[in-house]
Design a binder for these strands. Structure first.
Lengths: 202, 202
DNA sequence: TCTTTATTTAACCATCTGGTTAGTTAATAA
DNA sequence: TTATTAACTAACCAGATGGTTAAATAAAGA
């Protein structure tokens, strides 16, 4: 193995991600991360100078996993309506499969150090001009009511993301058990799409 | 003052809430809470046995502040459509004014101890039967498409709550500064209502 | 083989953290 | 006034936590 270096470093990142998803930045313990891969705590400091450096790097990886290429579809030249359905499809899939990353990312962005926000800005390259133009065009053709693209994105992301973020919240509020919640989520994708499409077409 | 007891205890709860909103359960420090009200750390243990006991009590208070009487409007006998507008109105107001409570509550429910979930169940008494009946009726009259009440509630809460929860997320994603985000949020209430109404009436 | 470099560990340290204790001060009751 | 209770503090403790260091082991190069 020519780069056991990289392997071990990645192994640490992976273990750190698990720990961070479960306990957050301040709850995460370097000792616990080390234990989980059968390594000394000093090993972590061999590859990462400080806990914050490790956490920042893991956040970068987490944010990429969660959001990478997700916004791309909005930048394509496909017609608006299919595009929207495609986006909702991709978003629900992504968030459903990375529900635990969601809370971590939101948490970090809201209460983490400044570095986290900088990393997000660095990794975000969404360009809204295409969608904006399409929405203006569609509005002037009376296909849809005039809306800002940011509000459309907000609606889509809210509908797709929150049910996964607020799992415990919804389960409690709506008195559902895990099985009921699963079946509830299954229907979400179609409902989110319906909701957006009907709103636009009104 | 007949109950300086109660005053001091509440003072501690208040300071603890600030600390918890800013740093979460594992990041919160009893010393910091004590310092903020000019009191010894031992004082906290005089009124609360453990940190967890204090945190649980503060969560109870926070959840009440955030959700109390919010679901009541859905249980009223008012006609569905006005009722929905009323709910969205109340929800947006509530979440806008307690955005910091939002993350704390969601965070605690998702990663906090079991006790937190029990407290939520204990405080939640939402009864969906009225809304369910109304939706069935409206559907059989072809006023709306048939939908589950849980999906309606999920849509409403997602649209009203997430923009406040994901402030840093949206600001980063949509490249908005604080001022742009403020103006973006101002339009949310109407948009959320529009979105829901048009979806139902489709 | 021998030397150098990269990987890994055991032991350690200073500081922090939740929690305890013994005692002090202030209020209340007798 | 004095005894009793409630409110409060200073000092302390044990364990945890992030981080360091010196040495050991493994790998690679000469």
């Amino acid at each position: 193995m020519v780069d056991k270096n990289t392997d071990r470093k990645q192994e640490i990142r992976d273990a750190a991600l698990s720990e961070l998803k479960a306990k957050g930045r301040s709850g995460a313990r370097l000792q616990s991360i080390a234990d989980n891969i059968g390594v000394t705590k000093a090993m972590i400091h061999y590859y990462f100078n400080t806990k914050e450096e490790l956490c920042d790097e893991v956040f970068r990886e987490a944010y990429r996993q969660l959001m990478s290429s997700l916004m791309d579809v909005l930048e394509s030249d496909a017609p608006v309506f299919p595009k929207i359905e495609q986006f909702i499809d991709a978003a629900v899939d992504r968030f459903a499969n990375h529900a635990d990353l969601l809370l971590f990312v939101i948490q970090e962005l809201d209460t983490g150090p400044q570095s986290v926000n900088e990393i997000m800005v660095e990794l975000t390259d969404y360009d809204s001009t295409v969608l904006e133009r399409q929405l203006e065009e569609a509005a002037s053709n009376y296909e849809i009511a005039p809306i800002e693209s940011s509000q459309l994105v907000a609606n889509m992301i809210s509908l797709c993301m929150f049910p996964y973020l607020g799992k415990a919240f919804f389960e409690g509020l709506l008195a559902m058990d895990d099985e009921a919640y699963r079946s509830f989520l299954e229907k979400r994708k179609d409902i989110a799409a319906d909701t957006i499409i009907n709103w636009l077409a009104s």
